[in-house]
């Protein structure tokens, strides 16, 4: 194995940093605040979670800023780049598995739990007469109207897929050195992501107000909201990452050989895309 490094074979080791410990303090505050909030202690929870949230913002800007500054100083060589690529790859792998387990939940509830409940001996079953159909809110659930695939969801699919195209095109432009075009592409991606999120919010609103489809609508409601909700959360995170990239594009940080930040975010965006496709197929369509 040969090592071609810019710095006399030194792998860059960052200086001691306060951010990791601060970040975990922030998460402790958020965790304690969350646990208190769900039990009704809203006021102390608000203070804790508020402080935690501010600290998260402070740490993220400082930590990400440090990484960007180090990058600008040119301390990252080829070897460091490989670490970042592997790191991002494994991170996305763990996210894939997280979503797989949520899809596993959908499979279990739909294909195992509901038919099992419907097949209980009616002499003794607490739910005699319950039929295994999907969507369902379960034997004791309230009535609701299920989601329909070929309205907003189909439109959203189109929007998110186009945003995948724009981000890929932007990455191609950056490798060719066309910074201006790349900046436009990232801007367009953010815009499409924003439209997607807005439509998704509207859909949740309609679900609650018109379809009577809520978190409490049995296993259909629960799996629908946890899957789409977590996807929405990931889109939001992706948007924040894209905004950082947009800022860095404006400042001209990226070049043909130096754009891993951009690339990593585009990987993440594609992952969010693919999850949505799965959602569209298994949650809305089938």
């Amino acid at each position: 194995m040969s090592i071609s490094q810019a710095h006399g074979g030194h792998y860059y080791l960052p200086k001691p940093s306060p951010y990791p410990a601060l970040m975990s303090t922030a998460l402790l505050l958020l965790g304690a605040g969350g646990a208190l909030a769900v039990n009704g202690y809203v006021l102390p929870a608000g203070w804790l979670a508020g402080a935690g949230g501010l600290l998260v913002v402070y740490v993220l800007s400082g930590w990400v800023g440090d990484v960007i500054r180090e990058n600008r100083r040119g301390v990252y060589g080829e070897k460091e780049g490989v670490s970042f690529r592997w790191g991002m790859g494994w991170f996305i792998a763990s996210e894939v598995i997280f979503f797989s387990s949520l899809f596993g939940v959908l499979f279990y509830e739909r294909n195992i739990a509901v038919p099992w409940l419907a097949s209980l001996n009616s002499h003794y079953s607490p739910w005699a007469g319950f039929k295994a159909v999907w969507p369902t809110s379960g034997p004791a659930g309230a009535a609701f109207t299920p989601e329909h695939a070929w309205g907003i969801p189909a439109l959203n699919t189109l929007i998110l897929l186009s945003s995948g195209v724009t981000v890929t095109w932007g990455l191609q432009q950056i490798t060719k050195g066309h910074r201006r075009a790349a900046t436009w592409a990232v801007g367009a991606t953010i815009l499409l992501g924003g439209v997607f999120l807005a439509l998704q919010c509207r859909e949740f609103y309609l679900a609650y107000t018109e379809l009577h489809l809520t978190l409490g609508s049995g296993v259909y409601g629960a799996t629908f909201f946890i899957l789409t909700g977590f996807h929405g959360l990931h889109v939001t995170i992706g948007m924040i990452m894209l905004s950082v990239i947009f800022g860095r594009c404006l400042k001209g940080h990226f070049g043909p050989d130096n754009h891993f930040g951009f690339e990593a975010v585009s990987w993440y965006w594609h992952f969010v895309d693919v999850v949505w496709l799965m959602l569209f197929i298994f949650v809305y369509w089938l």
Partner: peptide
Amino acid sequence: HFGTHFFSAAGGGD
């Protein structure tokens, strides 16, 4: 805390 039925038979969960 949020009324879902992942683990409750009443809502079709298990």
